[in-house]
Simulated scan of single mutants.
Amino acid sequence: MIPYGRQLIDKDDIDAVISVLKSNFLTQGPMVPKFEDVVSSHVGAKYSVAVNNATSALHIACLALELGPGDWLWTVPNTFVASANCALYCGAKVDFVDIDDRTYNMCSKTLEKKLKNAQELGKLPKIVIPVHFSGQSCDMQRIHELSNIYGFKIIEDASHAIGGKYQNQWVGNCRYSDITIFSFHPVKIVTTGEGGMALTNNKVLSNRMLKYRSHGITSDKSEMQSRPKNEIWNYQQIQLGFNYRMTDIQAALGVSQMNHLNAFITRRNEIATRYDRLLNDLPIGLPWQHQDSYSSYHLYPIRLDLSVIEKTQQQVYEALHRMKIMVNLHYIPVYLQPYYERMGFNSGYCPIAEQYYKETLSIPMYPSMTNKQQDYVINNLRRVIGS
């Protein structure tokens, strides 16, 4: 079986985890801050907050930016549901911006039109979440320019994009955003088993997220309320928070995985280049890369030219699965999920994203994939689509 994506764990990774298991700390020890420092130093952000998964990171990022009832959050439809659900967790409302037909990222021109209309209606978003789909950065400079005009905050959902670059700088440096989110799920670029991280250059936002991560508790005496001197108060809960902490076991794996990040990205780009060369004569659309972007290639999505291929998208999907090539679909537009349809969203709301959804499949992409395995994918894709 050839999956669409998978983790790559080596002996160094295993030894790092075993070392923690033999130590005095399994959680809330030295490895979490070390992992935070490794990631923030690599991408060039000032502060980082590691959490148990990227969904939690999105949630506390929204809370830190004071999203709440009556507010709007906008994101794209071709993403995992967490990019939108984080608004609902805060009691806010969510809306969607259609994508660019080449990058599959949030279309800045469509965003601008939607913002102009929302301003007239008095429904401007408090937060916009561009999603760096498949590892390629959005047009962050333009989105940032629009944020200065219309007054919204920006959370980059870079769950696919650690190791990628925008304008020759690492994704995650928060140059054009308030907060950036990374995911460390097993199919992502580097993994901690489950895990996520929020990065920012704003100390106030970092401190807020740190409290939200751990029950709203602080041990900082400057933040604690005075209590009788004969009582022991070495921590206080000063707000409502959550148990979103990452363990030292996860962080140790993350530190070790970060040692492989550049090699992982190089190999993913090699696989992508080989796909580009060996698939370019087929009736499929290949991923287009903007000159400002260096993709981490979390995914390699292809678009089937169904006017030429004598099969449906589902038939191609099922045929490849029978061949043990576990292609996947990224993503069903969020607003077409039953939960969101009950909010009033209907088909046709973001036509470019819907057309993409009807034509796309993500074919295998992971750093341990061999050329022989890739050849198997390519040859059987040729058989299935009849070329």
Results as ranks from 00 to 15, higher is better:
W233K: 09
N259C: 05
E223R: 14
G196D: 09
M209E: 12
W170E: 13
Q237S: 14
F182G: 01
Y275R: 05
Y235F: 13
R227A: 12
R274W: 11
S183A: 12
S206N: 14
A263P: 00
L205M: 10
R277Y: 13
Q169D: 07
L261M: 04
A263T: 13
S206M: 07
Q225Y: 12
L278P: 02
K229H: 11
R227N: 10
V187E: 08
G196Y: 01
L253W: 02
N269W: 08
Y176M: 04
K221M: 12
G216I: 05
S226R: 08
K229W: 12
T192M: 14
T180R: 01
I271W: 05
Y275P: 12
N259S: 08
E194Y: 10
H185M: 06
G241R: 07
G193N: 10
R268D: 00
R267A: 03
M209P: 11
D276H: 15
Y275C: 07
T200H: 07
Y244N: 05
N269M: 09
G241S: 10
S226G: 05
L278W: 11
D248W: 11
P186C: 05
G241H: 06
S222P: 00
Y244L: 09
N243E: 11
S222M: 13
Q236M: 14
R208I: 06
V190Y: 01
V190N: 10
R274P: 04
D220P: 03
R227L: 06
N269H: 01
N173E: 00
D178T: 01
M197G: 09
I271Q: 08
T180K: 00
R245V: 06
M258K: 04
L261V: 02
N230D: 15
Q239V: 05
Y244E: 01
L240P: 00
Y176E: 08
I265K: 04
N173C: 07
I217N: 12
Y275H: 08
I271V: 14
N201T: 07
M258V: 03
D178I: 02
N262L: 07
T192P: 06
G172F: 01
F264H: 11
M197R: 09
L279A: 10
L278K: 14
S219T: 15
H260G: 02
K229M: 14
T191W: 01
T191G: 08
T180P: 07
R268Q: 15
R175I: 13
T218Q: 12
N202R: 06
L279M: 15
S256Y: 00
D220W: 09
N202H: 11
R267C: 06
G196C: 03
N202F: 05
I271F: 06
I265M: 03
S256N: 04
Y275T: 02
I271K: 05
E223W: 06
N234K: 11
S222G: 14
I217W: 04
Y176K: 04
R277N: 11
L205C: 04
A272T: 10
Q225D: 10
T266K: 15
S222H: 13
H185Q: 07
K221P: 10
T218H: 13
P228T: 11
I179Q: 00
M197D: 00
P228G: 09
I249Y: 02
Q250C: 10
Y176Q: 07
Q169A: 06
E223P: 02
D248K: 09
S256I: 03
P228F: 10
S214T: 12
R274F: 13
R277D: 08
A272V: 10
Q236C: 08
V187N: 12
I265S: 03
M197N: 06
N201F: 06
I189W: 01
G254F: 02
F264Q: 04
L279N: 12
